[in-house]
């Protein structure tokens, strides 16, 4: 039944387009061995249905297209790695106790999830592409996955060296409102007056050098009390550069803020590991000083007034910050 159907479809066999020239050529080409029924039917079908080999370029383009897609996935994977390296290397871990309860909660917040997802998706696509190349199926899954990951990671490192990770993160942050760039994340973490953190720029100071006027990231003007700040902190605060101030809000209605430490707003690809280490050193030293000051004041209070009356000193507020408990001195 099916054979009949095949015959009906075949115009040569049905006599519509009998090609004696073709038959002669076919017989000549395959004459030394007896032609089988299948040989005859295949050759006649090729002739009758005008079957021609598909263009070589179609296959070449398909193969190159698959390789190009693979390369694209690796490049995008490398870009995501570059951003991840940038974020990982520049997340302000140095001051994590000031913003988070634990190092883990800090990392959970700063992890570049979107880029991790992009990297995973690109690795999967790279695997699928490589599998569809001519020889792709010959390799074990882990070989294909590892090779794609290695290419992306090495590419990502190279791109990071050239500052591409930083560029992507910063530009995406500027152009895409919903994109959480490193810079936006840092500002979100530090522009939190209720939790005792401010980001902004110095505007003016009073004559006694104890009250500084400061405009935060949201445009709010604050009066910063500098009683427990060191000269280095004051210099930094009054430098006119953007800074981070750690302390406590003493009067939310009057926008008064009691400062306990001032730290530079270090951000971007130019910040070195040395800078971050120095930042950490300064932070720990400042907090340790506050802890010592509070301890000293408490001792004086106990010796002079006993334990029953509240702390009579204006100083020592910084020793009560939540960050002091997290520091575990």
């Amino acid at each position: 039944m099916r054979k009949e159907k095949t015959r009906q479809q075949n115009p040569v066999e049905s006599g519509h387009q009998t090609s004696s020239v073709f038959n002669a050529r076919a017989n000549k080409a395959v004459s030394t061995t007896k032609r089988t029924e299948l040989v005859t039917s295949v050759l006649k079908r090729i002739e009758g249905e005008h079957v021609v080999p598909s263009s070589k370029w179609r296959f070449v383009c398909t193969e190159y297209g698959i390789w190009a897609l693979w390369a694209l996935t690796v490049v995008i994977g490398a870009l995501s790695v570059a951003v991840m390296i940038f974020v990982g290397g520049h997340a302000r871990f140095a001051l994590y106790e000031a913003t988070h309860d634990t190092a883990l909660s800090f990392f959970v917040e700063v992890l570049p999830y979107i880029w991790i997802v992009v990297f995973v998706v690109m690795t999967v696509l790279a695997y699928v592409n490589l599998r569809h190349t001519k020889r792709g199926y010959r390799y074990q899954v882990y070989h294909v996955v590892i090779s794609s990951v290695v290419f992306s990671v090495v590419g990502g490192l190279v791109l990071h060296v050239f500052g591409i990770g930083s560029l992507i993160d910063t530009q995406f942050g500027k152009r895409m409102p919903n994109y959480q760039s490193m810079e936006k994340a840092e500002i979100r973490m530090w522009q939190a007056p209720k939790e005792g953190r401010l980001v902004g720029i110095f505007s003016a100071m009073d004559e006694t050098d104890t009250l500084y006027v400061f405009t935060d990231e949201a445009g709010q003007v604050w009066k910063i009390e500098t009683l427990e700040l060191r000269d280095r902190d004051k210099e930094l605060l009054s430098s006119g550069y953007q800074v981070r101030v750690l302390g406590t809000t003493t009067d939310a209605a009057q926008y008064r803020f009691y400062a306990c430490g001032v730290f530079p707003w270090m951000f971007g690809k130019d910040v070195s590991t040395m800078d971050i280490r120095e930042d950490r050193k300064q932070f720990v030293a400042r907090m340790y000083e506050h802890m010592e000051t509070r301890k000293r004041l408490l001792d004086i209070q106990r010796e002079t007034y006993g334990n029953d009356i509240p702390m009579p000193f204006v100083e020592g507020k910084c020793g009560e910050l939540a960050v002091m408990e997290r520091m575990k001195f």
């Binding site: 080409a29 032609r35 040989v39 295949v42 090729i46 002739e47």
Partner: peptide, 29 residues
Amino acid sequence: MQENVHDMTDAEIIEKTLDDQVFFGHIVM
């Protein structure tokens, strides 16, 4: 010439087939 076809490798017959489809009969056989 005909004998040569039987000594040819598959790849060689494919080459020939691309010039003349009737050589494809040898592949089928």
